[in-house]
């Protein structure tokens, strides 16, 4: 099985495709692959407390590792201590780590 890195730059409010991206990541995880969904730029918007993000909530329970970029959160005033359970704030370095690891990387 392979390892995947999804770099999600968009949010489900502006693009319907984002929920399809979440489903694709879940499908890959369901097929036995190791998958990280890294949220960055407006991709972090659905992590705010009270945000309506059923697609992201479903993703969290599929075995996909969901990370989000600390800078993007801070830029948008989203508190890192109130993220949904299962979502972890982290530095962008993780993306470089996983690129260097040779994961199949997909910028969304």
């Amino acid at each position: 099985m392979a390892k995947y890195l999804f770099i999600q730059t968009r949010d489900p409010y502006e693009s319907r495709q984002v929920d399809q991206d979440y489903e694709l990541a879940a499908g890959l995880a369901g097929a036995g692959n190791e998958v990280t969904m890294f949220l960055v730029q407006n991709g972090v918007l659905p992590t705010r407390r009270g945000a309506q993000a059923p697609g992201l909530q479903q993703l969290i329970h599929t075995g996909v590792q969901v990370l989000c970029d600390e800078f993007s959160l801070r830029e948008r005033g989203i508190a890192t201590n109130a993220l949904p359970v299962g979502v972890q704030a982290t530095a962008l370095d993780v993306v470089v780590d996983q690129l260097a690891e040779g994961r199949k990387a997909i910028w969304l």
């Binding site: 499908g27 692959n33 199949k104 997909i106 969304l108």
Partner: peptide, 17 residues
Amino acid sequence: TRAELPKVFAKYDQVWH
């Protein structure tokens, strides 16, 4: 189908979007 994409991905070393 969308659900078949993982099988296609598995045939390639890299996926460019």
